[in-house]
Design a binder for these strands. Structure first.
Lengths: 137, 137
DNA sequence: CAGCATCCATCTAGATACTG
DNA sequence: CAGTATCTAGATGGATGCTG
């Protein structure tokens, strides 16, 4: 990353020094926000592992999500192109969800965070423990 | 990632098939949540670029954040060990914040998401546009 | 300067009930 | 089965005023 003297708005830079497009910046913030909604990553993971799942199968396997939240999560993911929704015109209804190429690569992009967490789990815990102990005295 | 037949709780896997520790999983979710709080990443970036900054300098450069939120963000980041807080016993008070090694590597870990966003910006926009157009008819 | 305490608007998620 | 609609409790963030 390179030095940035501009006051406002903030300009992000990649580690190699390439300044980032504001649009990219906006998308990154959206992505992180979306994934942080707590259900998106779980759905992504399940579809990553199992390819295709029906609404109720997702509902059951996630466990703890409400129907409303599952629907909302799936709609947002579909809208952004991470998953594909297929409706079969049968009675009772049958709807299948499957991960797309885009969703697949997104999952992989978050992999760096996973590896960081694995590697630094203890450092973070230690830091927090030290911090908390200092305040409690 | 490998197939996972367990119903609940969900077990995450790395792309190479290594099952993830529940503790790591929890930390990943926390990290993404923390970074998604909208200010953490901005602070991380500023300290990444400029090394050390005082409270008011951060406050000014971020622009739009409230003092309360800045304080809260800085405390959380300090607690997790991403930044270091140094208080100089002078009047008026002087407090400096600087990024740690841990914070530095965390920023780099999120780089994969950045690169994904850069590469797939158009795909996402197209997907969203198509989705929105289909509903408006 | 660098906070903390308090109040308040808003946004969100979950529970619940209903439907093609 | 796969949703939609509605209501509400709780979390979140911003504004404001005060302080060592």
């Amino acid at each position: 990353m390179i030095k940035n003297k501009s006051i406002n708005p903030i300009t992000y830079h990649a580690p190699d020094g390439t300044p980032a497009d504001p649009e990219v910046q906006k998308l990154v913030e959206e992505l992180i926000g979306q994934v942080a909604d707590k259900w998106t990553m779980i759905v992504l993971e399940l579809l990553y592992e199992q390819g295709t799942l029906r609404f109720t199968e997702l509902f059951r396997q996630i466990g703890g999500i409400s129907q409303k939240m599952l629907t909302q999560t799936l709609r947002n993911m579909e809208r952004s192109g991470f998953i594909q929704r297929t409706v079969y015109p049968v009675v009772p209804p049958k709807v299948e969800y499957q991960i797309t190429e885009l969703g697949l690569t997104l999952g992989e992009a978050f992999c760096g965070v996973w590896m960081w967490a694995e590697k630094n789990l203890k450092h973070v815990h230690t830091a927090r423990k030290n911090y908390d102990e200092e305040r409690s005295n």
